[in-house]
Amino acid sequence: MDPRLDHLVDWASSTIRREANLDVNTSLEMVSGDASFRRYFRLRGLGKSWILVDAPPDKEDNPRFIRIAEQWRHQQVAVPQVLAADIDQGFMLLEDFGDHLLWAALHDPAATDKQILALYRQAIEQLVQLQGVSCRHLPVYDEACLQREMELFRDWLCGQQLQLALTAAEHRMLDRVFDLLTRQALAQPVVTVHRDYHSRNLMLKPDGGLGIIDFQDALAGPSTYDLVSLVRDCYVRWPQALVDELVAYYWELARPYGYYLGDWEQCVRDVDWMGLQRHLKAAGIFARLNLRDHKPTYLADIPNTCQYLVDIARRYDELSDFSLWLNQRLMPALVQLSR
């Protein structure tokens, strides 16, 4: 029994009947529940389909979702059209982009290197389009936000999931690293940031284009944030040569518009250090999803996410103590977690 779902389906069916003059004899399927309180369902009927969103209004900012969707669509960013909404109940009816995630296309055994590169180039082109949307009305990705995100790593992963008793010296080391990463991020140009621009939030639409979902947490922030989310995806890992090629493609596209201004060496450093910030955040969130939200499947993504920390930290002398700590303390504890 799910009275809320029944109510959502009744509302959506009557909305479709009223707005599209379609008396839909519907079938319903679960699309996903994501890392928030939202649930998504696909409603089918008469050869058409729609996405139903259950987003409890006491948990989700649905007016913000709708505002962003309308603004981005107006600027030719490929996000689903909001066809109807009941703000009080937390119900939305969205355009259906289909069910083919970029993640699935990247993992298709038949996918060639050329096809994978083309998909990523398309995603970067869409990202540059997104960065051209005004971010004046978005909250700012400021120092407090960046620091708060990295604290998730210290609290939820180190403290609660791994139960590492950090020494005073280790706390000071993490404080210093967090400050370095924050300053590096805040020195970048400020653009519209999706915040979760990766393979599970990009859809291959029936027309061959890429559609963007799960954008409701957008902020005005560092220009390389979404880029590193894409090319150093927590759910996918690629050879460094491909990552470098994709970063260079973004660099070439973004510089003429002023979305990124630094030279190539600066771009590499910005991507690396922005990635450290993001992967610290993501590892903490995955642990929180397991412990607080009872979603243990995300534990499997922590080792790959933390391996990015190891790979990048060892490249920079300023992070040598952090690199040592990752190898001697964090990664062995993760090995124990996976047993």
Results as ranks from 00 to 15, higher is better:
1 M>Y: 13
5 L>Q: 04
6 D>S: 15
9 V>E: 03
19 E>A: 09
20 A>I: 03
20 A>W: 15
25 N>W: 07
26 T>I: 14
28 L>T: 11
29 E>A: 15
30 M>K: 14
32 S>L: 11
41 F>P: 08
43 L>P: 06
43 L>A: 13
45 G>V: 07
45 G>P: 07
46 L>I: 08
50 W>I: 15
51 I>V: 15
52 L>Q: 03
58 D>H: 09
59 K>V: 04
60 E>M: 01
61 D>N: 13
62 N>L: 01
63 P>Y: 01
64 R>G: 02
64 R>I: 03
68 I>N: 00
70 E>Q: 10
81 Q>A: 11
81 Q>V: 11
90 G>E: 00
91 F>A: 06
91 F>D: 04
95 E>F: 06
95 E>K: 04
96 D>H: 08
99 D>G: 01
110 A>F: 05
115 Q>T: 08
115 Q>C: 04
121 R>L: 06
122 Q>F: 00
125 E>D: 14
140 V>Y: 11
142 D>E: 11
143 E>T: 15
146 L>N: 08
151 E>G: 14
152 L>E: 00
152 L>K: 01
155 D>G: 02
156 W>T: 00
157 L>K: 00
158 C>A: 11
159 G>Y: 10
159 G>C: 07
162 L>D: 04
176 R>L: 12
178 F>Y: 13
179 D>L: 15
180 L>W: 10
187 A>S: 13
189 P>V: 10
194 H>R: 12
212 I>Q: 04
217 D>N: 11
219 L>D: 00
223 S>W: 04
224 T>S: 05
225 Y>M: 04
227 L>D: 02
233 D>T: 07
235 Y>L: 10
243 V>Y: 11
254 A>L: 11
259 Y>V: 12
262 G>M: 13
269 R>I: 08
270 D>W: 08
271 V>S: 04
271 V>E: 03
273 W>S: 02
275 G>T: 06
276 L>C: 10
278 R>Q: 05
279 H>Q: 11
281 K>F: 12
283 A>L: 01
286 F>E: 00
288 R>S: 01
289 L>G: 03
292 R>N: 06
304 N>Q: 11
304 N>C: 07
307 Q>L: 12
310 V>Q: 01
313 A>S: 15
314 R>P: 06
314 R>Y: 07
315 R>W: 05
319 L>C: 05
321 D>M: 06
323 S>R: 03
323 S>T: 07
327 N>F: 03
331 M>S: 08
339 R>Y: 12
